[in-house]
Design a protein around this nucleic acid. Structure first.
Lengths: 227, 227
DNA sequence: GTCTATAGTGCGATAGAC
DNA sequence: GTCTATCGCACTATAGAC
């Protein structure tokens, strides 16, 4: 399995790539035309939005707050998005793309079910460690998304869960595991993975590192699925 | 253990009791003086607030929305609370009191560690089933609370978790369990209990009932803690 | 005890200067 | 490409009628 610092770099490169994609897709609403400037400012805007939203909620964050935080004026901000709703959409999209891209890349590298399960758990934890603000944001603001994006978020949740169900079922078929209820087992895995980024304060207060947490979860899952 | 319909009734009675307490504590800001009217309207206001907040967030819910939903005018609403913030406080308080009261009552009834653990899990799930809107609300709006109430929410989370840690440690001391890491085990229990009320749509879509979920969690925990 | 009407505030969004 | 100035709107909160 990939190590954490290489992993971080991979994610950061992905972030810029995807900001570039977003720029080209929203070419009509982004008035600025120089790619380098746009990508630089989009990263600043996204990070500031995540910071402010995670403190007091996206609705409660005003564009004036965002202006103060980014150092850009109201007018400048509105040359990057049509309105608050489009900003929400762009951020949601960026995160979904990065996570699904990286998660799939990492799982494909592993051959047997047990290693795929371990890789999936570790990768998800690493991802939510590097992109903690986005994961928290996506969870907390899901109900404020447009109907279309809400559906996308639900699909993403179910997709990740299906990924775990499939690994568990494959392991059972090959005789590696003896999992009784792969649906509830996958739901349990998702729940504990989410706890890691939603309750960040709890684990950091207790000095529990991501590796320790990963090892613990894997050991618990292996107790559930192995006779 | 108590059955679910008796349990529901117990909670509902508790709710009125606590609205009565809230009325007396906020006697200065609640202009209406007839207890019966106040309690009736507080229950209506609280439920409407939970409904609207859980759809689009407390900040995004305007007092006008609340007026429409409750059938009370703006003026009438403002005779029950000084402002939106006080409303938030009252609701947060009401839920915290009910849950800690009921949880303690139910656990005290059980004698040995294994039954206390089962009772704690079942009671927490039943509570979050009856009071699902409040549990969801408390989780999602935690970051919008005043500093004082934010501290209260954290204490409440840690208190419930400590309750599980203590049961696990007691079981280990008496030789009932063989739990390796009671802190991480308790965190895992909390995470899956929270998933039940935060991802309500997922479990109801799959027709998983609260009893089935409770049994599953208990069986998983017993695999973790028992050699 | 509850209503209607309104004062005052701060927001999202834009037009035009630089 | 970014800034400053401003418009119109929806909101919280209150005062006074009933």
């Amino acid at each position: 399995m990939i190590n954490f610092s290489v992993f971080s770099e991979l994610v950061m490169l992905s972030m810029e790539d995807i900001c570039r994609d977003i720029f080209h897709e929203h070419a009509d609403s982004i008035k600025t035309k120089k790619e380098k400037i746009v990508v630089k400012n989009l990263v600043i805007i996204f990070n500031a939005t995540l910071k402010l939203s995670n403190m007091k909620g996206f609705q409660a964050m005003s564009v004036r707050d965002l202006s103060r935080e980014t150092g850009l004026s109201m007018g400048a901000l509105y040359s990057y998005f049509k309105g608050k709703e489009e900003l929400l959409d762009m951020i949601q999209n960026q995160g979904l793309r990065i996570t699904s891209r990286i998660l799939n890349e990492q799982i494909e590298n592993e051959s047997d079910a047990r290693n795929r399960l371990r890789a999936a758990i570790r990768t998800h934890l690493f991802l939510s460690e590097v992109l903690q603000p986005w994961f928290y944001f996506a969870y907390m603001e899901a109900k404020n998304l447009s109907k279309r994006l809400q559906k996308q978020a639900i699909e993403s949740e179910l997709y990740t869960e299906k990924l775990f169900i499939d690994i568990l079922d494959e392991g059972r078929r090959r005789g590696d595991f003896k999992v009784e209820n792969s649906i509830l087992a996958a739901a349990l895995i998702k729940a504990v993975l989410q706890d890691w980024y939603l309750k960040r304060w709890k684990y950091s207060r207790r000095n529990i590192a991501v590796d320790e947490y990963a090892d613990y979860i894997i050991s618990v899952i292996e107790r559930i699925i192995i006779e």
